[in-house]
């Protein structure tokens, strides 16, 4: 039984990291699209999103089988539930990548406007948070995970600044409202990438320490299985 569980956990770990590397590639490609929109690349990202959806279902299925067949407890149970949750977060990041690529194509159809440096900076930081959250999962490092959680506020702040600036630009140049709306949407999507990275980091803290830190600001809820 222990050998079966160990084998199942190893497979889940590998599948999740394969999924994360694909999703990271997708989000990088999508963010790069903002600078140089490319319809073919957007279609490719949409297809990759379908593959990620399949992988998400497969990982969830494997997690449920592992739970049913091995009835794990303690850290093994936390590992399986964490893999299932991170897989869900990554699937949503892949959806966001597809959305950002579509927004970039929308920008290509509109009059050319330069992408604000601040938006590129936010995109870079958000994608970096995702990478560090996965690093924390691989290294089982709750300190690294907490750092990721702490960086989310900076991204939220940048998003608010960018949106304020975009609204100002809309008032100033109403003829450019369509591309500015695409940028508005892209900014919110990138901010959500940081949110999902934060969720993954919180899951890592739960995996290592058995403590649920999500919504920690609203209520104290600590539970160790």
């Amino acid at each position: 039984m222990a050998q079966h569980l160990s084998r199942d956990l190893r497979k889940l770990h590998r599948d999740l990291l394969a999924m994360s590397s694909r999703v990271e590639d997708m989000i990088h490609q999508a963010v790069d699209q903002l600078g140089e929109p490319n319809f073919d690349q957007a279609v490719k990202i949409a297809k990759l999103d379908d593959a990620i959806d399949e992988l998400d279902v497969q990982i969830e299925d494997d997690c449920l089988k592992a739970l049913a067949l091995n009835q794990p407890a303690g850290v093994d149970l936390r590992r399986i539930t964490t893999v299932m949750k991170i897989s869900g977060e990554l699937e949503r990041v892949a959806d966001i990548a597809s959305n950002i690529a579509q927004r970039a194509c929308g920008l290509a159809e509109s009059p050319e406007i330069p992408i604000p440096d601040r938006l590129k900076e936010m995109a870079h930081d958000a994608v970096d948070m995702l990478h560090r959250a996965i690093d924390a999962y691989v290294d089982l490092d709750p300190v690294k995970a907490m750092q990721v959680c702490g960086d989310d506020d900076a991204i939220d702040h940048m998003n608010r600044e960018i949106i304020d600036q975009l609204i100002l630009d809309m008032h100033r140049t109403p003829e450019r409202i369509e591309p500015l709306l695409h940028l508005f949407s892209a900014s919110r999507q990138i901010e959500r990438v940081a949110d999902h990275a934060t969720n993954i980091a919180e899951d890592v803290v739960y995996l290592v320490e058995g403590t649920i830190i999500r919504h920690g600001r609203h209520f104290e809820h600590k539970q160790v299985i």
Partner: peptide, 8 residues
């Protein structure tokens, strides 16, 4: 696949 994390 754990250290490099590049699908390619």
């Amino acid at each position: 696949w754990e250290v490099i994390r590049s699908s390619s």
